[in-house]
Design a protein around this nucleic acid. Sequence first.
DNA 1: TATTATTTTTGGTACGACCAAACTTTGTAA
DNA 2: TTACAAAGTTTGGTCGTACCAAAAATAATA
Lengths: 241, 241
Amino acid sequence: MSNAKLPDEPAPRMSEHRAADAMVAEIEQDIVTGKLANGSPLPPERDLMGRFGISRTVVREAIATLTTRGLLESKPRYRPIVRSPGYDAAFSAVGGVVMHLLKQNNGVKTLYDVRIFLEASLVRHAALHARKDDIVALREALERNHAAIHDPVEFDNTDVAFHAVFYAIPGNPVFPAVHRAFVSWLFEHWQSMNRSVEQNLIYYAGHKAIFDAIIDRDPEAAEKALLSHLGEAWETVRGTF
Amino acid sequence: MSNAKLPDEPAPRMSEHRAADAMVAEIEQDIVTGKLANGSPLPPERDLMGRFGISRTVVREAIATLTTRGLLESKPRYRPIVRSPGYDAAFSAVGGVVMHLLKQNNGVKTLYDVRIFLEASLVRHAALHARKDDIVALREALERNHAAIHDPVEFDNTDVAFHAVFYAIPGNPVFPAVHRAFVSWLFEHWQSMNRSVEQNLIYYAGHKAIFDAIIDRDPEAAEKALLSHLGEAWETVRGTF
DNA sequence: TATTATTTTTGGTACGACCAAACTTTGTAA
DNA sequence: TTACAAAGTTTGGTCGTACCAAAAATAATA
């Protein structure tokens, strides 16, 4: 809430100053300007403390800050890796909180409902605005899904991939990122359930119904099919937590 | 040298272990179980280091971790405040990354488009499913907006409040949180522009058109009105960055 | 009782040190 | 010459101590 401090010049404010801010700001610049290439490791902490004239304590704090901002990716014993900010980074930053939210009352259902709402809008959008290549992508995804009906693992993958197409159609990079976030948050909750072939057939039928409605350019039917499909899916997994 | 030999842990398990993890896990528990009440301050760092048998360095690192997870809210010179995880916390956790994303190519437009997409779906939903009290809330928000046409600051507030109603109608706590996030991310980019009364009249007319469509239970008209309204708004602010 | 001065607490930062894991270089055998 | 293992060198993780200044708490005063 009140911690939205923009990286502005610290001229007027003073008491709000943190020693790590200087390094954070500069490294931030180096990353967005490409001076620090994406994927490259951050210089050693001992170098940084020399470069900025700060103690290692502060260097490490700065690194922590940059990590939470998604500009660095740091693993336990390794050098932090530079990451240019992206939409996926944004969502992965919330992973920690979301885990708690999912555990509390109706947390999973609440998030699943959001997914339903969004995806219903997306299929409606697809029915209205999907272009030829979008349709092709959908058809191919559907066929791959059909071909994997007897392969539990692959069916899940093609299932996710089919839905992913809808998130890609608007052409806005936020939606695919949202989808990946949904998958990573929700899927693992019922990942272990053993799908039967009959189950897969039902799911595939759901996908097919959505696809057909898209072909027919019928947003109402598409939305209805999607709602039905996701409703079924929920019923089969609601007991797994 | 003369340092007393600390009892080496006889069970140094896997190498993936971080010293701060123990404290993070325990405090996490204390927060979700309410042992640490929401809004209360975290115990002093020096107490924590005694309680967990770790150095202050590690205590501070644990605090940083808990902060990024949205379980603590720490201001520069003050004690961290306990915050039970909520959907708003999730979004504020991404604030840092989003700032960067907004600065890059079309960042604001990309996010604004998402807002348009979502809000279009929300007004459509409202047209179809709004209940009496939802309509009442909308009407009251609209009236307050009308009454504030000559008050630039208050007009902005009532503007936001009117749109907020749509995010509240589905009854899913995620949507209001999304709305607040949108506002905090997008609004400040054009907050400073001086609205004229004529401008406000146009905006109010947009709100009114949406409201009327809701009353008519006409989702198509509602969506169209919303699109038109947000399109106008975009045109007036697109130059401010 | 309200205000202000004073003491104590506590977070922010610095230094220095040590360990163990990761990274390099070197040495040796095939 | 090459492959691989041993030895040496970074470098991140953690600890401990110390000091300062800003909060918080307490005492003094109008």
